[in-house]
Nucleic acid binder design. Sequence first.
DNA 1: TTTCTGATCTTCT
DNA 2: GAAGATCAGAAAC
Length: 219
Amino acid sequence: MGERELIGPPLDRGFFGRPSDEVAPDLLGRVFVHGPVAVRLTEVEAYGGPGQDPASHTYRGRSPRNAVMFGEPGHLYVYFTYGMHFCANLVCMPEGIGSAVLLRAGEVIAGAEVARARRLGPADGPSAPAARRPIRDRDLARGPARLAVALGLIREHNGTDCCVPGPMRVHAGRPVDAGDVGAGPRTGVAAGAETPWRFWIGEDPTVSPYRRHVPRRRG
DNA sequence: TTTCTGATCTTCT
DNA sequence: GAAGATCAGAAAC
């Protein structure tokens, strides 16, 4: 099967203009493409929406940081966290309602060498490949920060429209049977941890291990 | 295999 | 000033 058949046609804006907890499981098996790298999504989390979601960045209202989440659906929301990581979301719901789906993990199905090079960092830097343990294929995009690195997503991509012709699109891929979709509490969130808005493809090796929120100790 | 901890800085209170 | 939608490596088991 050729790559074209594998990733299918791009999804249109209507796909994203729904509640995030409806879009999230529907995104499993879809393919996020950025330039030469394509990732088949295997794990996602829904945030925000019309109701109150204390775990969402939009819970306390609009701010310069989360403005994209209140914008047009189908755009990319990239944020910086823990002082060193980027995470990527796809905006859902019509404009004015802060809602998005966090891309937590996936399988790299094209551009694996580019993704691996990004994960390893510069060849002559302190994290040179020779000084690092090898990265298994299943770990290339296993976890939200790793996925962002593999796809080359950084701050400048915040607000990118993924529903127009360009290097960044979400393709139909192959939807997953409802029976193969797992659901459970979201990873690493303190508030709203009981809401089962984390969705993954059952038995898929690229799904990241669940970690509950652990309050950090003061130094 | 599981648990713990340091790294690092933006955002919000 | 404190916490955070994390990760990698070390230590413990």
